[in-house]
Design a protein around this nucleic acid. Structure first.
Length: 220
DNA sequence: ACCCAGGGTCATA
DNA sequence: TATGACCATGGG
C-alpha cells in the first residue's frame, strides 16, 4: 500500500514537475493564506491577500492593530469574513506571544502541532498547512482532494480518520519533508488543472475515465 | 438559479 | 462519536 502511494506521488511528479509551493511571499503570509482558504476557492483568497498587501497589513502586529470590522472588510472576498477576521487576530496574537518565527523554530514538531490545534479556528488541515509550508516540518496535509483521489485509486476506503491518513502518507513518503511538500501541491494541481478543466477527463478523480486514474489503480 | 471551493466550531443525541 | 447547522463570497 505504501509503495502504491509512493508511486502515485512519482507519477504526478513526472506528469507536472516540481511545484515549489506555497504561493506566498513569506512564511507569515502562508499562515494567513492557510486560514483564509478554509473551505474557500483560492481565487477568492488571492483577492483578500491582495487587499491586505495593498494596505500593508500582512504582519501579525498590523493585523492586531486593526479593528475587527476593518479586518473583516479587507478580507471580505475570501468569505466567512467575520469568523476569519477573528481567527487571524487570535492567530497573530499567539504568533507574537511565541516569539514569531524564531520562537516557533525552537519548538519540536509534535508539540507545535498540538499547540496549533489548541487555537480557536485552527483544525488539522490548517495546522498541517502551516507546519509544512510555513515552517518546513515533515507533516503531510490531508484535504478533500487527497481523500477523493486516494479513494478513487482504491488506496483507501475514504472514511478513515484524518490522523490515520496523515500517518499513512508520511510513512509512504519516508518522512521526507520535500516529498510531502510536493505531493500535496501536485494533488491540488492535478485536481484543479486536470480534473476540473479537462473535458476528456470529465471530473476525474470523480470518474473512471481519467488516464491517470487508470495508471494508479490496483493491478495497473 | 444552483453548486461548491485547498474547513472548523458548536449544539445536540 | 457522530451527524447537522452555520459561516459567506465569487466563479462555473
Amino acid at each position: 500500500m505504501q509503495a502504491r502511494i509512493y508511486r502515485l506521488y512519482t507519477n504526478l511528479n513526472k506528469l507536472y514537475g516540481a511545484q515549489k509551493w506555497w504561493p506566498a511571499k513569506s512564511p507569515f503570509e502562508v499562515m494567513v493564506g492557510a486560514i483564509l482558504t478554509q473551505n474557500t476557492a483560492w481565487s477568492n483568497v488571492e483577492k483578500a491577500i491582495t487587499a491586505m498587501r495593498k494596505q500593508s497589513v500582512l504582519s501579525p502586529a498590523k493585523i492586531l492593530a486593526l479593528k475587527h470590522d476593518e479586518l473583516a472588510a479587507l478580507i471580505r472576498p475570501s468569505g466567512y469574513f467575520n469568523q476569519k477576521a477573528k481567527r487571524l487576530q487570535i492567530y497573530s496574537d499567539w504568533f507574537l506571544s511565541q516569539g514569531g518565527l524564531r520562537g516557533l523554530s525552537k519548538i519540536e514538531t509534535t508539540r507545535l502541532r498540538t499547540a496549533l490545534l489548541g487555537l480557536h479556528g485552527i483544525g488539522p488541515e490548517t495546522a498541517d498547512d502551516i507546519l509544512l509550508y510555513a515552517l518546513d516540518r515533515p507533516v503531510f496535509v490531508i484535504d478533500a482532494y487527497t481523500r477523493r483521489l486516494f479513494s478513487r485509486c482504491n488506496l483507501i476506503r475514504g472514511d478513515e480518520p484524518y490522523e490515520e491518513l496523515r500517518l499513512l502518507v508520511e510513512r509512504s513518503l519516508k518522512n521526507q519533508t520535500q516529498a510531502m511538500n510536493e505531493f500535496h501541491a501536485l494533488i491540488v494541481l492535478h485536481a484543479k488543472e486536470h480534473c476540473q478543466k479537462n473535458p476528456v477527463c470529465n471530473g476525474c478523480p470523480l470518474t473512471r475515465s481519467c488516464q491517470f486514474y487508470k495508471n494508479s489503480r490496483k493491478g495497473e
